[in-house]
Design a protein around this nucleic acid. Sequence first.
DNA 1: AATTTGACTGACA
DNA 2: CTGTCAGCCAAAT
Length: 116
Amino acid sequence: MDGAEFHAAVYDTVRLIPPQKVTSYGHIAKLIGMPNRSRHVGQALKFLTAETTPPVPWYRVISSSGTISSRGPGTTGAQNQSNELEAEGVEVTVGRTGEMKVDFSVYGWFPEPGSI
DNA sequence: AATTTGACTGACA
DNA sequence: CTGTCAGCCAAAT
């Protein structure tokens, strides 16, 4: 599997995430069959943002601790991501420091590899 | 060619 | 709760 196939595998897996559900980078990597490529999942996702067909719901992928990665100062990305999630009906908890969290016990999606 | 970076994770203090 | 450390690897510097 080369870089392009890795990208395609990530996109396909992200598209499998059901509405109103979220999962983590590490689990995406696991589903692909490469549990130690969590960082590259993030790299593949940042390369998106452009309109793809069909679209990739990248905003349903967050860190394993249930928090949305801030990626840079300002209200870029992360704020938009929480907006998208709330639009889907996912409850996003925001603390006083701007921390954005999603309750995995309610919205988490972690199927076993091979069950999909 | 060598070093650093990064939308990460898990374990531990 | 916060912070540190090690493991991971393609891409960027």
